[in-house]
Amino acid sequence: MNDRLTALKLFARAGRVGNFSSAGRELGLSQASASRLIAALEADVGATLFSRTTRAVTLTEAGEAYLMRVETILAALDEADHEARGTGELRGVLRVGTPVSFALREIIPRLPAFIEQHPALKIELRVTDRYPDLVTEGIDVSFQFGALPDSSATARKFIRQPRILTASPDYLRAHGTPTMPSDLAHHSVIISPAHPSPTFSFRKDGRVASVRIDGQLAITVNEGAIASAVVGLGIAASSEASARAELEAGALVRVLPDWDFGSMEVNALFVSGKIIKPAARAFTDFLIAELRR
């Protein structure tokens, strides 16, 4: 029975990642063991679940239909185990997707308290400023800023953070301090995930001001944009929370603080149509409570 459950978990992951070996490694299985379990599962089911080539494995039509049911069963089993324990104890593996800044500044400092509450739970942080694929990467919950690119995900509004502009005192002494949004056209503005558009829009007293910005540096990680602003490479856009430590230390100062630069919504994303894993729900509730204090 235990082999069958392991085989189902292996099948579900292999069906998403398209590879027996990587799916097996997640479960601590060798490639040979993974292949044997999948073959035994197909024999038990009485259907070919995967089409195999030398480079990859893909689900057959029967495999696609089977996967939908298996994922629902595994999620329900996880929920049932959690409720049966009746202690609130979380077990298994929780895979969390998060942008770099949010991981370093908001999640990791709060992890010790959550881990202490749930010592049997293993947590994998998938830290990247790109939007992960929740399904193929097996992510249980992903925290993402701004517009949501994945319509197949179920979103839960998390928090909203003001978007701000910052620069180092040295940069402003050398290049001058902008007093109007139009002044940004004459400054080096660092392009980053916090605001990848070349047009910045601001509001003040019912007025809207837009300016097209330019700069020598574009960077794919928002933490890099903040670090670049600290050393004087230009003006950086970020959430207020992402630059809080540098602002408090005086390494950065606000630029155009009297103008509203909008806000960045943070959403918790879950795979649509799947039962939310108890650990994902608990971790999301925990972070919301912590950040709202």
Score class of each variant (00 low, 15 high):
residue 223 E to M: 13
residue 231 V to H: 11
residue 21 S to A: 15
residue 162 P to R: 14
residue 11 F to E: 04
residue 92 G to E: 07
residue 133 D to Q: 04
residue 120 A to N: 10
residue 204 K to F: 05
residue 186 H to D: 12
residue 98 T to A: 02
residue 88 G to T: 05
residue 162 P to S: 02
residue 136 T to P: 02
residue 247 L to R: 11
residue 64 E to D: 06
residue 156 R to Q: 12
residue 48 T to P: 00
residue 126 R to E: 01
residue 129 D to C: 04
residue 84 A to V: 04
residue 247 L to D: 01
residue 124 E to M: 07
residue 226 I to V: 13
residue 214 D to E: 03
residue 152 S to L: 12
residue 249 A to W: 01
residue 285 D to K: 03
residue 233 L to E: 12
residue 120 A to H: 09
residue 174 A to C: 05
residue 264 M to Q: 15
residue 82 H to E: 03
residue 52 R to G: 01
residue 110 R to K: 08
residue 116 E to F: 08
residue 161 Q to M: 07
residue 235 I to P: 09
residue 188 S to A: 14
residue 100 V to G: 09
residue 11 F to H: 07
residue 120 A to M: 09
residue 219 I to Q: 11
residue 76 A to W: 08
residue 204 K to V: 06
residue 145 F to Y: 09
residue 188 S to G: 10
residue 211 V to S: 01
residue 144 Q to E: 07
residue 67 L to A: 02
residue 79 E to V: 07
residue 290 E to K: 10
residue 107 I to N: 00
residue 12 A to K: 10
residue 74 L to F: 05
residue 51 S to A: 10
residue 45 V to I: 05
residue 115 I to M: 14
residue 153 A to G: 11
residue 65 A to H: 06
residue 185 A to L: 11
residue 50 F to T: 05
residue 290 E to R: 00
residue 90 L to V: 01
residue 68 M to L: 11
residue 8 L to Q: 12
residue 279 A to T: 02
residue 261 F to G: 14
residue 251 A to N: 09
residue 280 A to M: 07
residue 227 A to E: 07
residue 258 D to C: 07
residue 180 M to F: 15
residue 5 L to T: 15
residue 279 A to E: 02
residue 120 A to D: 13
residue 233 L to P: 03
residue 234 G to E: 06
residue 101 S to M: 14
residue 252 L to W: 04
residue 146 G to W: 03
residue 109 P to R: 14
residue 225 A to S: 14
residue 283 F to I: 04
residue 48 T to I: 08
residue 271 V to W: 15
residue 147 A to L: 14
residue 48 T to C: 00
residue 236 A to I: 04
residue 186 H to M: 09
residue 262 G to E: 05
residue 126 R to S: 00
residue 238 S to V: 03
residue 291 L to Q: 03
residue 48 T to E: 00
residue 153 A to L: 07
residue 232 G to R: 13
residue 173 R to F: 06
residue 219 I to C: 09
residue 163 R to Q: 04
residue 56 A to N: 14
residue 137 E to R: 04
residue 198 P to N: 00
residue 42 E to Q: 11
residue 179 T to A: 13
residue 210 S to D: 02
residue 247 L to S: 08
residue 162 P to V: 00
residue 256 L to A: 03
residue 270 F to C: 01
residue 84 A to F: 10
residue 187 H to C: 10
residue 208 V to L: 10
residue 234 G to M: 10
residue 178 P to D: 07
residue 185 A to S: 12
residue 52 R to P: 03
residue 223 E to R: 15
residue 287 L to A: 00
residue 51 S to D: 06
residue 113 A to E: 05
residue 48 T to R: 09
residue 89 E to P: 12
residue 86 G to E: 02
residue 119 P to W: 08
residue 16 R to K: 15
residue 251 A to F: 13
residue 133 D to H: 05
residue 117 Q to P: 04
residue 2 N to K: 15
residue 95 R to C: 01
residue 244 R to S: 11
residue 254 R to M: 06
residue 267 N to W: 15
residue 207 R to F: 08
residue 171 Y to M: 05
residue 58 T to S: 15
residue 139 I to N: 02
residue 90 L to N: 03
residue 208 V to N: 03
residue 34 A to C: 04
residue 200 F to P: 10
residue 92 G to W: 02
residue 131 Y to L: 01
residue 99 P to G: 12
residue 252 L to C: 02
residue 93 V to I: 13
residue 160 R to H: 12
residue 274 K to E: 08
residue 192 S to Y: 04
